[in-house]
Structures are given as structure tokens and as C-alpha cells.
Amino acid sequence: MSKDRPALVELRFELNGKDVAVECEPQQTLSEVLRGRLNLTGAKISCEVQVCGACTVLVDALPVSSCTYLAYEAQGRSVTTIEGLEGRDRTLHPIQQCFIDEFAFQCGFCTPGMILSAKALLDDNPDPTDDEIIHHMDGNLCRCTGYVPILKAIRKAAAVMKEARG
């Protein structure tokens, strides 16, 4: 194998409910593959040190920093990006709708990561306390909103989702 160009990885995984196959290089991150190869640009790149959460996607339902998650590790796993949250009939996920209703974003750069991080929380803990929301979301930065509207949106989404479950 050439020292400069390590072998390509044949990567297959489930992306937003559909199987995908793509070749990637071993050092490529999941965000590079999603954004560069698969044209899913919802995951944003900001701090690149796993502090800000803008690049958050879900791998097997857990939030990861796609900017620092090697793409090959998604092999055989299920990846959810912000593009996968809308329903087939284009209805928004309750978290997305609540973010709109509560003005929980301004520039929008943190928003895909915020929403996915919130989804991971609510799928795991449908009725979180404020402290639990804050603890879970503490690794997602937002420079615009002062967080309070985001907290309200997540609270409201929990209630909406609970009601939908009946």
C-alpha cells in the first residue's frame, strides 16, 4: 500500500433510514463524507474540537461530533442527520416545529446540532427536568439566543411528543 494514499474504505451504512454506499479515505471524518460526498450540508463545522456541537449527528441514536468522528466507523450503523427529521409528508419533527415557535435560533448555524442533540435526549428521556435538559445540552453552544428560548423549545417539544404518544 502506498504510504501517501492509504486504501479507500468501502463504506455502507444506513443514512436517514436508507442504505447508502460510498467510498471514503480512512482519515475522512463523517462530516466530510456527509457534506462533501453526500451533499448533506445540514451538519455545520465550527470549533473542530468537540466543544460546540454544531456538527452533531446521531449514530445509532447517540449524538456524536461528526467533525471528529471517523467516517469508516459508521460502517453498518444507522446515522441520522437533520435532513432526516422531516416526515415523508414534509411535516416537521415536533422539535423542529417548537424551535420555530419559540424563536430558538437566530443565525441558525448551531440549530441542526441543537435539534439532533435534543432529539437524542427526548428519545432517551421523554420527560426531562430543566436540569436534565441543561446537563444534556451543555455541550452545544449558541452565540445568538442566550439559550433560554432553546430550553423553552425543548420543554415544549417534550410535551408535544408526549401528547402525540397519547
Partner: peptide, 10 residues
Amino acid sequence: RAKVSGRALY
């Protein structure tokens, strides 16, 4: 809608 769905273009 664009911003919560990842479609807002930067």
C-alpha cells in the same frame, strides 16, 4: 423552516 431542516444555505 430552512434553518431547522438543515437546508439554509451558508
